[in-house]
């Protein structure tokens, strides 16, 4: 399982991020999902494009590899679960993750991250972020089943995927025509 982020549909509205916080009533500065603007110089014309990112539930999760107390597990369906009960808050995972996914909860003195709404998925519900996206730009896909065509493994600003093999896939933004006064 992994996220499919459709950057053509995404309007950078942060509904996904807030729906995640609403679902888990998380601490203000702990953001399991973040919406990043893609630098406007990355494409042929300036546009407002975004990456909505949470945990990438990597095939080779560095967090899992470095965690000294085995707080991380990877389920058979691919979801990388962080068990806060085991976590000692040493921040090794935060240092190892190329995507700055695990975040430190100052109050609990432990790490936390997106568990792909495992509880909701197990009940047959969509993830909170997918359920909230007003333009259906986010979905959870079966990583094994989908075609590689039409999807890309990175967009500008997304760190090198070769290290941990993230399962997140992207649909590229389509750049429309512009008639501008500075041309």
């Amino acid at each position: 399982m992994g996220f499919l982020v459709d950057a053509e549909r995404c309007i950078g509205c942060h509904a996904c991020e807030m729906a995640c916080k609403n679902e888990y009533q998380s601490e203000p500065n702990v953001r399991w999902r973040k919406v990043y603007p893609i630098n406007e110089t990355e494409y042929s014309l300036p546009e407002r494009n975004h990456l909505s990112l949470a945990c990438n539930h990597c095939e080779k999760p560095e967090c899992l590899r470095v965690c000294p107390v085995r707080a991380y597990t990877k389920r058979e369906d691919g979801i990388v679960i962080h068990d806060q009960g085991r976590c000692i808050g040493c921040k090794m995972c935060a240092m190892a993750c190329p995507y700055e996914v695990p975040q430190y909860n100052v109050r609990l003195k432990k790490m936390e991250k997106c568990n792909l709404c495992d509880g909701r998925l197990d009940q047959g519900l969509k993830t909170a972020c997918e359920a909230a996206c007003p333009v259906e730009a986010l979905s959870v896909i079966d990583f094994n089943g989908f075609t590689k065509y039409g999807f890309v493994i990175a967009l500008p600003g997304f760190p090198d995927p070769s290290i941990t093999k993230p399962t997140t896939r992207f649909i590229k933004p389509r750049i429309g025509a512009q008639v501008r006064r500075d041309q």
Partner: peptide
């Protein structure tokens, strides 16, 4: 109040809120 969600009965808002709406508990 532990959570707010969009009401799917409304075919315009389609069971979704916006970034602002999802902050209501705060």
């Amino acid at each position: 109040l532990t959570k707010v969600e969009g009401n799917p009965q409304n075919t315009f808002t389609r069971g979704r809120l916006c970034a602002k709406g999802y902050t209501y508990t705060r």
